[in-house]
Amino acid sequence: MKTIEVVAAIIKHDDQIFATQRGYGEFEGGWEFPGGKMEAGETPQEALVREIKEELETDIEVGDLIDTVEYDYPKFHLKMHCFICSIKHGDLVLKEHEDAKWLTIDTLDTVSWLPADLSLIEKLKCYLKNCQKL
């Protein structure tokens, strides 16, 4: 099975997390953390900065790695490096996504997360409650 390696930004502001809804492709309509594929020679952090600039016209500060999710979709294996991030500059302009929301610990379960992203929700709740590294 083909492996696709990607990065995801868990953009945090105060007690909220930014979530995006896919506007294209096989998983259109599903909710995810923004990011994308790594290019040859990039570190996960470099890829994340580039992807968020391309997708959301926003400069981010990449913080702690929260998890590396391994998930088997029917057609490929996903390896997703997930980092807590903050906004340095920009207004989170949706260029590729259908919709976006700021979610709190109490509203993280109110969207239909894509399966790989769903596996992060419990860890995020713990992170938001304790403000500690995982």
Rank of each mutant, 00 (worst) to 15 (best):
P44R: 04
D59R: 08
Q16V: 02
T58Y: 11
G41D: 12
G41K: 05
C85G: 05
E57Q: 15
D14W: 01
Y71H: 08
L48W: 09
H81S: 04
E51I: 07
A100S: 15
G23H: 11
E32K: 03
I10Y: 04
A9W: 09
T20A: 13
D117M: 01
Q16W: 03
F83A: 04
I4A: 05
N130W: 15
K88M: 09
K53S: 04
I52W: 04
E46A: 03
L124Q: 08
L103Q: 13
G63Q: 05
C82L: 03
E96W: 10
L94F: 05
I66D: 06
H13P: 06
I66N: 00
Y24L: 12
R50C: 00
Y24W: 15
I4Y: 08
P74K: 06
T104L: 14
R50H: 05
A100D: 14
L124A: 07
G30N: 09
G41W: 02
K101I: 14
Q21K: 13
E54W: 01
E55C: 12
K79D: 03
W31H: 11
F76D: 01
L56F: 03
D117I: 09
D15L: 09
D67N: 15
L114F: 01
M1N: 10
Q21L: 11
E61F: 15
G30K: 13
R22L: 11
F33D: 04
Q132A: 10
E55K: 15
V93S: 06
S119P: 02
F33K: 10
I52R: 00
F18D: 05
E5R: 12
V62Q: 04
K12E: 13
I84M: 10
A47H: 02
E98C: 06
C85L: 08
T20W: 05
G63Y: 07
A8G: 04
A19I: 05
D117T: 10
K133E: 10
W113K: 13
K75Y: 09
A116G: 11
D99M: 03
W102A: 10
P115T: 03
I105N: 09
V62I: 14
E32V: 13
D109W: 05
M1K: 04
M1P: 06
D91V: 03
R50Q: 03
M80H: 00
T58C: 07
L65E: 13
Y127D: 09
T20D: 05
I87M: 08
G25R: 00
I60L: 10
A40R: 03
V93I: 08
S86E: 14
L114P: 00
R50F: 01
K129M: 15
D91L: 05
I4M: 09
E42S: 01
Q16E: 13
C85Q: 02
L134Q: 12
Y73N: 00
K88F: 13
K37C: 06
A47S: 10
V62E: 15
D91G: 08
W113F: 07
